[in-house]
Amino acid sequence: MRAQFVLSEIGIGLRRNLTMTIAVVVTVAISLALFGSGLLIRAQVEAMKDFWYDKVEVSVYLCGESSQAATCGGAAVTQQQRDEIQADLEAMPEVDTVFYESQEEAYAQFREQFEDSPDLVENVTAEALPESFRVKLEDPTQFAIVASAFAQRPGVEEVQDQKALLEGFFNVLNKLQLIALIIAGVQVVAAVLLISNTIRVAAFSRRRETGIMRLVGASNLYIQLPFLLEGVLAGLVGAGFAAGALVAVKAVLVDGQLRPNFPVIAFIGWSDVLAILPWLFLTGMLLAGLSSFVTLRRHLRV
């Protein structure tokens, strides 16, 4: 096998078909960029789960003087109720730790959280905020057991699961991921058709050469390899652009915009991006290689 010969054939083929090659590269790049985005979104969801599921708590809010809930009976929680609730919470096997937050502590945290909005802080007093038990569960998915045990108890205003707030956000991300993957799938179909058409045109424009190659006894591999490598090369270049796009998204959007504005949220790191890139190149190569191979079997038979 003469590498120089094969390489020069590839160069000739790509130049003769420049517009088609560009179309293939662009389609593959878009398809793989969306595919990669889907994977990045999944990595983002996982990163947030890892970060938050350790920290999410179930909040058992206790009745205050102005509580409207039926379980409060229009009165604040009594000392006895409070002690019983705490004892029962600590006795539950699902519960890891219980932490009591008084109205003053809640107010302090509220002021810290909204220090940029002094108007809001001025209008709220410590009495307006509920005292609560912050409950950390052994397994954050076991919220329902705690909720059913305490939601109807006298002195409990509301049981709130922070995980439910996160889940809404995760749902949005998962839908985004699904949309990205669906568009990627459509683009994959377009890429396969384009590659197969490009290879067909290339095979047709070089039928004189391939005809002579067949006559003098060149092997199938020798005849088909330049075409196959042309497809794979276009696929790899497309994957390269897709990889560049993902790196740019991570650097400009995630690190440049999102991270400074949402410092409390855990974002994907470079290791997540680097883990995805090999898959892009592998997918691009297989996509182009397989569609070229199938086309060649139909159009360049010995």
Binding site: M1, R2, F5, I212, M213, V216, A218, S219, Y222, I223
Partner: peptide, 11 residues
């Protein structure tokens, strides 16, 4: 030369 190259004959 093409006839020889495509059957892998060395230069």
């Amino acid at each position: 030369a093409f006839a020889l190259e495509v059957i892998g004959k060395p230069r």
